[in-house]
Design a protein around this nucleic acid. Structure first.
Length: 901
DNA sequence: GAGCACTGC
């Protein structure tokens, strides 16, 4: 069916783009924006902004409405059979987070995963650094394989793990040596150290309670344990407590790593309540800018980045007896790197008095991969607890009205269908890729209200994405008004980061926008991709948080099967230079031999090494040019929580005498845009107008500095006013209120994102503190910004460009074959100076330089010449290395035992 | 004169 034929009027009038046969966005002519959230909407009950344009959509959907859903759902046993649905078909059901056909979901410890594995001999080492290789240090092998802590906790004789050696060929043989449940009950743990105070707090039953005793036994007996449990199983709150009750915390605190700050803070709060203590007592958390732990703390919830920084200071992490990596399936850069480091830690602490225990917790069934990585560690499965979700797919044979590629169009059709067929009061969550699409769909849905039957509720579209102003974001969490159905149209922010109550239906476009790093040219590519199967499952799961739900997938089951199983790990799609710098601080010498869960491409590794060498942070060892060590400069870079080129800017600024200004700029660069906006055109114009006020001919970095200086000024005045007011005995409460209101007004007047401003200022303080620790002398350049521009140019010289008048484009100085444009959001996009340096190179429809500063070519020329020299050697060496690897390859295929670098 | 998912130190 011809999509354009179906929706002639609004498609052309309201949308800035359409999606073509190949899935690419095609630009349409711009339109006049109409507010999506008209105040009158709720009083009138209907929005009428265009007459008669929707007649086609309502016609096509009325026909569909008459075709009844034939549901053969057997509600008693929670199973679903093939649904005869004219709209979409479903033969599967997502129960407890698991897609099932018929069988009931029963998750417990699967015997086949309980393997007894021959442990390789453990080397005893006398080394101080984590990544020392065999040739770097003396290695002697102990005669007896290392034993995990004796599993005598239960008082039950248990076969020894290491003595039940079985041959390699029979590894798959299963030996169930776990004592039976009855057995456990009759012999409870002999010395429970902490027991939740059930008088103060009784928590509801959790699925994890069923396997509690068994888990406790495994926690005590295994060196490494993998816990697989779906959402709602209670693993994130209970496993750390079980560790404490099993007496593991006696030898050191339990660290629990989370990928997000909110998770770390809220989990700590929850567990503190359950254990009847305060935050900072037995339970605490540590995230950036906030450390709520004390010497008493036994369970520390932390973000994975914090643990990584802690490892830089104390590589063996000997404060901790156990590290629990939560949400390992998300494969964040930090958690992947942590797993690699912790494995090394474990090897080195194995023979000590305080061996390190590792617990990997993950939601999806990627157990095999983690298990192989951790030398066949035991896996325990825990059931999840979410409500059943019916999953529908588009069936191209039946659903002829769907476009084959235009998921934005399909979204609107699907919302209308759901709205007219699902019970009133069931809110909808739609997943799309970006603000532009989201605003377009919100607009179209608002217009749909005009063509709804009188009996139907009002559709209340609510956009939700990160760049949206915070007040607007809050709309998504507001209670749905009577007589309306809330339709939240969101990016993947609603996948993990926020949970919206009341969602009963999810519509999944199957698309996501993601950034990948092209290492060879150092370009970020932002592109729409298909989601992974795991991601689709995660999205569907958002419908079953409060009650049974439904998920409509705007793609066929065949397409779904073609999706990747898991998300691409972050480590495979980002610039590795910052990570390598950290790992080298820990003693890694040859990144090519790094044993990661998913090893990056050799080209990406080489690109990061080249970048670090050119920045002067590392240098090859003369005896073996495959190995690198940190230079003094590289060592000081590690102290800052910054990408290496930004740290280099600070280093240069110290030389130039403008460290104060450089810190302000670099801090602001670490946050998202300080000017707040969204895809609301009216606001965009305002942002644009106000941004102009700060514009300079020197570029965006100086603009940023001017903005920060202005806000500093404002805060100084505000603070002195508040102090003065305090002397006049104003109450603290009213002072605080006035203070906060003044900030809000200032941010509103200047279109500044208050949250981002706050973050930037906290990062500024953090960087200042580090600079003081590093004995960096304080210096400022006053109003002469040349020194700052030079520091930026030197630090980021790899990003310097020369204007090509003939082409009317810029050429990258280190690689003139690459041509690019200055992004129109930059204040230099029109003036086009001869030489510039940029912060970031982003490929969307064109190759754009973001955040641009005017520079002098002489500042960077010597560095570029030097870089070209280094690159030449580098290329020759990497070619040689690839050849060597190719020759050694057959041998290298052998099963890996001890991993050395 | 274009358009930008999400985290984290």
């Amino acid at each position: 069916m011809d999509v354009n034929g179906n929706f002639p009027a609004w498609k052309k009038k309201k949308r800035k783009f359409k999606i073509g046969k190949d899935g690419q966005k095609i630009k349409l002519k711009p339109s006049v924006p109409i507010s999506v959230f008209p105040k009158s909407a709720q009083t009138n009950g209907v929005i009428r902004q265009s007459g008669g344009q929707e007649s086609n959509i309502s016609a096509s959907l009325t026909i569909k409405k008459k075709k009844k859903f034939k549901k053969n759902k057997n509600k008693q046993n929670g199973t679903a059979v093939e649904m005869k649905d004219e709209f979409m078909t479903s033969s599967v059901q997502l129960t407890n987070g698991v897609l099932t056909k018929k069988a009931k979901v029963e998750l417990k410890t699967i015997p086949s995963l309980l393997r007894v594995v021959e442990k390789p001999a453990t080397p005893v080492r006398s080394i101080s650094n984590l990544f020392a290789s065999q040739s770097d240090s003396k290695v002697s092998y102990s005669e007896k394989p290392a034993l995990p802590i004796k599993p005598s906790l239960l008082g039950t004789p248990v076969p020894s793990v290491s003595k039940t050696t079985i041959s390699k060929s029979s590894v798959a043989r299963t030996i169930a040596f776990t004592p039976s449940k009855d057995n456990i009950k009759s012999t409870p743990p002999s010395t429970p150290k902490f027991v939740p105070n059930s008088e103060k707090f009784t928590r509801p039953q959790l699925p994890i309670d069923v396997v509690e005793q068994q888990l406790m036994y495994e926690l005590a007996s295994q060196e490494t344990l993998i816990v697989i449990g779906e959402t709602g199983s209670g693993k994130s709150t209970q496993v750390p407590q079980l560790c404490v009750r099993a007496g593991i915390a006696e030898k050191g605190a339990i660290a629990v790593t989370e990928p997000r700050r909110v998770a770390a803070v809220s989990l700590a709060a929850r567990v503190a309540v359950e254990m009847g203590t305060d935050i900072g007592g037995v339970v605490g958390y540590h995230v950036r800018f906030e450390n709520a732990t004390t010497h008493k703390t036994k369970i520390e919830y932390m973000t994975d980045g914090i643990v990584l920084r802690k490892a830089l200071v104390s590589p063996l992490l000997d404060k901790y007896s156990t590290v629990i990596i939560d949400e390992a399936h998300e494969r964040s850069l930090h958690s992947d790197v942590l797993m690699c480091i912790l494995k090394k830690c474990q090897e080195q602490r194995r023979e000590s008095k305080n061996p390190l225990r590792l617990i990997i917790m993950s939601a999806t069934l990627q157990a095999d991969k983690f298990q192989a990585y951790f030398d066949n560690a035991k896996v325990v499965l825990v059931a999840g607890r979410t409500f059943p979700i019916e999953v529908f797919h588009v069936n191209p044979k039946i659903n002829k009205s769907f476009s084959s590629t235009d998921y934005v169009y399909n979204t609107v059709i699907c919302v209308k269908h759901v709205h007219l067929n699902e019970p009133k009061g069931h809110d909808i969550l739609v997943f799309l890729t970006g603000s532009e699409e989201i605003e377009a769909v919100a607009h179209q849905l608002a217009e749909l209200n005009g063509s709804l039957p009188a009996s139907a509720d009002f559709i209340l579209p609510v956009p939700l994405y990160a760049a949206l102003r915070p007040e607007k974001q809050k709309e998504a969490f507001r209670k749905t008004p009577q007589g309306a159905r809330k339709v939240i149209i969101s990016t993947n922010i609603a996948e993990t980061s926020v949970t919206i109550p009341g969602i009963r239906v999810v519509i999944d476009s199957g698309k996501v926008k993601s950034k990948r790093f092209e290492a060879t040219n150092r370009i970020d590519v932002l592109k729409v991709h298909n989601v992974s199967k795991a991601q689709a499952k995660q999205r569907a799961g958002r419908a079953g948080r409060d009650a049974p739900g439904k998920c409509y997938r705007l793609y066929s089951r065949e397409d779904f099967h073609k999706f990747e199983t898991e998300n691409m790990p972050e480590i495979l799609r980002c610039n590795l230079s910052a990570t390598f710098l950290e790992l080298m601080k820990l003693g890694m010498k040859n990144p090519h031999r790094l044993q990661l869960l998913d090893p990056p491409e050799p080209e990406n590794i080489d690109a990061a090494l080249l970048e670090l060498t050119s920045l002067g942070a590392i240098k090859p060892i003369t005896s073996d040019r495959n190995k690198f060590i940190l230079t003094d400069m590289g060592n000081s870079f590690c102290m800052y929580p910054l990408p290496p080129d930004h740290a280099r800017v600070l280093f240069q600024a110290q030389k130039e005498g403008c460290i104060m200004e450089a810190i302000k700029i670099i801090a602001a660069m670490q946050t998202d845009a300080l000017f707040s906006g969204g895809s609301d055109s009216k606001i965009d114009l305002d942002v644009e107008r106000i941004r102009r006020r700060f514009e300079t001919r020197e570029g965006d970095h100086i603009t940023l500095l001017k903005l920060v200086l202005l806000t500093n000024n404002f805060f100084d005045q505000l603070n002195s006013k508040t102090e003065a007011d305090a002397r006049y005995n104003k109450s603290n409460k009213s002072l605080e209120r006035e203070y906060n209101e003044a900030i809000r007004k200032f941010c509103n007047d200047n279109m500044i994102n208050e949250q981002h401003l706050k973050t930037a200022s906290m990062i500024e303080d953090q960087l200042k503190e580090i600079a003081v620790e590093q004995n960096v002398p304080f210096s400022t350049c006053g109003a002469d910004f040349t020194k700052i521009r030079k520091s930026i140019a030197v630090g980021m010289f790899l990003n310097s460009c020369e204007y090509d008048r003939q082409e009317d484009r810029y050429r990258l100085m280190i690689n003139p074959a690459i041509t690019l444009n200055i992004h129109p959001s930059s204040c230099l996009s029109r003036s086009k100076p001869a030489y510039i340096v940029f912060s970031e190179l982003m490929k969307t429809n064109d190759l754009y330089a973001l955040q641009v500063t005017l520079i002098d070519a002489d500042w960077v020329r010597p560095l570029i010449t030097e870089h070209k020299k280094i690159r030449k050697n580098h290329l020759a060496e990497s070619a040689q290395r690839i050849q060597q690897i190719a020759q050694v390859e057959p041998k290298a295929k052998k099963p890996k035992l001890n991993t050395t670098l």
